[in-house]
Amino acid sequence: MNKQYDMLSPEALGKIDREVAKYPADQKQSAVMAALVIAQDEKGWLPKETIAAVAGYLGMPPMAAYEVASFYNMYDLHPVGKYKLTVCTNLPCALSGGVHAADYVKGRLGIDFNETTPDGKFTLKEGECMGACGDAPVLLVNNKRMCSFMLPEAIDKLLAECN
């Protein structure tokens, strides 16, 4: 096997193979979005070399994979805290406290949007509509876990659970 992919674990490569199998044999590039997520989950974020490794594995130019990684908002091209919290502040959520929830988290963590706490534990992001406005306020933990009805007590509880 090509050395270049060593930075991804056999498990990660196995998961990427399963994604590749969803597309026609000559369309491996279609798996790049899922593959970058798999790589990001493993590395915590996406350094250039990791993106290049994913591109190499899928037989596409590194620049093409980098374009994808920089176009979509949930890829992290810089290190983030152990817990990345993304709060939706779009209008439908704001009507039910989305902006106030973000302000509350900022106060609790002592950071603003796009900042990380000094202990490296939390990064805070502002999100756009997550398709869950009926459950406002909503926030995402590490892109994949949606938390609903995040009023002050629920936020306190979530922050206490994050170790």
Partner: peptide, 27 residues
């Protein structure tokens, strides 16, 4: 039939942006 996920780009809801995205490109 297979599932493909987005990763945070509203414009991929536009149908041809969505198709570009399935092809592994910017949407």
């Amino acid at each position: 039939l297979f599932a493909h996920h987005g990763w945070g780009a509203y414009i991929c809801g536009e149908e041809t942006g969505l198709l570009e995205s399935i092809e592994g490109k910017k949407g």
